[in-house]
Structures are given as C-alpha cells and as structure tokens.
C-alpha cells in the first residue's frame, strides 16, 4: 500500500513497522530528504501475506536526534475491511453548575435572629431604665 511520510530527520533510515514500536519491519526508507523540516517521501509498502484482516497500525521509527519528536509516527490501515462507523460523541455539559445561594429557611433564621437580637436590646434597655437611682445621688429638698 502507498504510505506517505513527512518531517522525518534526514540522515537516518525510517523503518515502517507493523502494529508495535518493535514490530516487524515492512519497509525501510533509507534517508528522508531534503531536510528535517521539509522531508517527504511516498513509498509502496508491501503487505505481509500472513496479516490478519481488520485494522492494523503502521508505525514509523527512526533512531536519531534532530527535532524529530513524535516518533513513532502512526497510521491506521484496514485489511479486507472498512473503517468502523465513528461512534457518536458523548454528550457533554453545555452549562456550569451554579450555587443557588441561601435558601428560604436561611432567610427565616436570619429574620428570627434579628428579632431575638432586637428583643434582647429592648430587655436590656428596660432593665437599665428600671434600676433604682444610686445611693450617692442628690436627695430631694426637704421642706
């Protein structure tokens, strides 16, 4: 089958392997050209006679250091079969969860708390007002 490769580092062979990074080599491209940033090749890769039907992965490996990240490169092929129908993507949320804020019970408690506080203040004020005058206070004028 026809296989296209690009952006492999120049100077070292590219091995096209079957189904695993250490799988058997189906084809070797000797030296991608013209440069690492621009290399391209199109080759005919023989398909093994004993390959099982169904999906397989071609992996291209290269032992080299020169900006050639992404190795092994991978491509899928289907032997005597067709690509499966893509599954429908799972529905994801379209909105985010938002806190509802204080509920009605919270507001009732706030109100009761305010009422209790007000009654306490009133009771305290009444208690202070009802206290007898202090002993050292001025006496009324006697006539």
């Amino acid at each position: 089958m026809e296989v296209f490769g690009s952006d492999f580092a120049k100077g070292k062979p590219v091995h096209i392997r079957l189904d695993a990074p250490d799988g058997r080599i189906l084809y070797t491209h000797p030296d991608p050209q013209p440069s690492t940033m621009t290399s391209q090749f199109t080759v005919q890769v023989p398909v093994p006679a004993d390959i099982s039907p169904g999906p397989h992965v071609l992996l291209a490996t290269q032992e080299h250091y020169d900006m050639n990240i992404g190795i092994p490169a991978r491509a899928t092929m289907y032997v005597n079969s067709s690509p499966p129908v893509a599954p429908l993507p799972t529905d994801r949320a379209a909105v985010l969860e938002v806190s509802g804020g204080p509920n009605a019970a919270s507001y009732v408690l706030i109100g009761l708390g305010g009422a209790a506080a007000a009654l306490l203040v009133a009771a305290a004020a009444r208690a202070i007002a009802a206290r007898p005058p202090s002993a050292g206070g001025a006496e009324g004028v006697k006539t």
Binding site: M1, V3, H15, R17, I25, L26, A49, T76, M77, T90
Partner: peptide
Amino acid sequence: PPRQATPGGQTTPGAEEAPGGQPGSQFRP
C-alpha cells in the same frame, strides 16, 4: 468521550504482498 476512529488506508485487490516482513534492526525504546 469515545475517540473517533481515524480514517486509514485499505488494501486493494491485487496489491503486492510481502513474504512477511523483515525483523530488521532491533528497536530500542
């Protein structure tokens, strides 16, 4: 979410078949 299948090539009738591939040089991960 499930990954979408990536379309790939298909073998065509009459394509050249290799005897089975070469073990080749050892792959060093």
